[in-house]
Write a protein that binds this DNA or RNA. Structure first.
Lengths: 176, 176
DNA sequence: AGCTTATACCTAGATGCCGATGTATATCGA
DNA sequence: TCGATATACATCGGCATCTAGGTATAAGCT
C-alpha cells in the first residue's frame, strides 16, 4: 500500500524522499503514521525493481536530495497495480482510499469503472460485525452503545459511499 | 489488534481457536481476512505471556479442540489495553472499531468516556488527504472524481461518528 | 559562536503477518 | 466406499513494518 502510494505520487511528478514522506503522511498518515524506516527501504525496493531512478541534487535548505523519477516500467507497474488491485485493496478502507487517490492515472474510464464496480460489489454483499449464531445483529440489537456505534457508523459510511459510487459510475458509463 | 480481538472475545466466554477465527473474521475479516498462520501463533504468544490457558476437549464434529480461557492476568491485560490504547488504535478505523467492540468490558463509564474523548479529539483536529502547498484541498477542488469521493466519504463518516460520539458521551457523563 | 530546528537520508534488529503447506477427524452425498 | 467438505490445529519461509538509533547540512536565533 505504501509502494502504491509512492508510485502514485511519482507518477505525477519527480519528488525527493522527504517530500514524498510529507505527501504519504497526509494521505494515510493522519490515520497510520509512516516511519522513516518504512519509507526509505520501500524506495530502495522500488529502485531495485527498476521502477524508479534517483538523481542526487544539492538540497535547497539542507543535505543533498535524491530526486526520484518513475521509469516507464514504473509507470506500467502503477497502472497494473491499479487495474489488478488485490482483494484487500478493495475491502480495506485505508488501502481502498490509496487506490482511489491514484485511480485518475488509469486514464481509461472503462478500466476505472471496473475497479469501482469491484468496490460496489464488496459493499453490496451483506456483512455484519457481530453475529448471534448465524443471524447478523442490527445496530439496535448490538447489546451495548459501543457496538451500536460501530454498526451505525459503518452504515452511514457505506450509504455515503454507495451514493457516490452510483453517481460516479453513471458518469463514467456515460463517457464510454 | 488481533491480540486485542482475541482477548476481547475470550473475556466474554471460553472459545476454541476455530470459533475465535470465525468471530475475528466477522469483526475485521470481511475487510481484512485473518490467516491461520496469523491466528494460531498469536494464540501461542498470548498463552506464553500467561494471559490464556488451554484445555483439550474432544471436537464436536472433528479433530480435538483446544478450549481457550482467559486467566485473571489476561482479563487485566485486556482492560489495560483498552484504557491505554495506542495512538494508532485511536486513529486507524480498523483498530478503533476493535477497541469499540470490547469497550463495554471496561465497565466504568468514566474510563469509557475518556477513550471516546480521545477519538473525538482526533476527529476534531483538522486534517485533509491532499494539499496544495500548505492549503488543504476541499472535496470540490480535489481535481478528479475519485479524490472528491475520498473527501466526500471521509466527511460523511466523520459527521456520523461525531454525532454518535456526542450523544454517547452525553449519556455516559449523565451516568457518572 | 553556539544552540535549536527543520531538512534529508540511512541501517539494524525485532516482530507480526501472510501464503503455502501439512496433519487429522467427522459428516454427507454419490 | 469413495471423495468432497467442514472442522480443527500447526509450522515455516519470506516480507513489510515499526522502533530506535545514527549521520549530515543549512537557517535562524540568541
Amino acid at each position: 500500500m505504501l509502494e502504491l502510494a509512492i508510485l502514485g505520487f511519482l507518477y505525477e511528478q519527480p519528488l525527493h524522499g522527504y517530500d514524498l514522506k510529507r505527501r504519504v503522511a497526509h494521505l494515510t498518515g493522519h490515520v497510520r503514521p509512516i516511519a522513516d524506516g518504512t519509507l526509505y527501504p520501500a524506495i530502495k525496493r522500488l529502485e531495485r525493481s527498476g521502477w524508479l531512478e534517483r538523481q542526487t541534487e544539492p538540497g535547497s535548505r539542507a543535505a543533498p536530495r535524491h530526486m526520484l523519477t518513475l521509469t516507464s516500467a514504473g509507470r506500467e507497474e502503477l497502472l497494473r497495480r491499479l487495474r489488478e488491485a488485490g482483494e484487500t485493496d478493495i475491502s480495506d478502507e485505508n488501502r481502498w482510499f490509496t487506490v482511489l487517490a491514484f485511480l485518475r492515472h488509469l486514464a481509461d474510464s472503462v478500466a476505472q469503472a471496473e475497479v469501482l464496480r469491484r468496490r460496489q460489489a464488496f459493499l453490496t454483499q451483506p456483512s455484519s460485525f457481530f453475529y448471534e449464531g448465524a443471524q447478523p445483529l442490527r445496530a439496535e440489537e448490538a447489546g451495548d452503545p459501543f457496538r451500536e456505534g460501530i454498526l451505525t457508523i459503518a452504515r452511514a459510511t457505506s450509504e455515503a459511499e454507495s451514493r457516490w459510487l452510483d453517481a460516479t459510475l453513471a458518469r463514467l458509463d456515460a463517457e464510454a
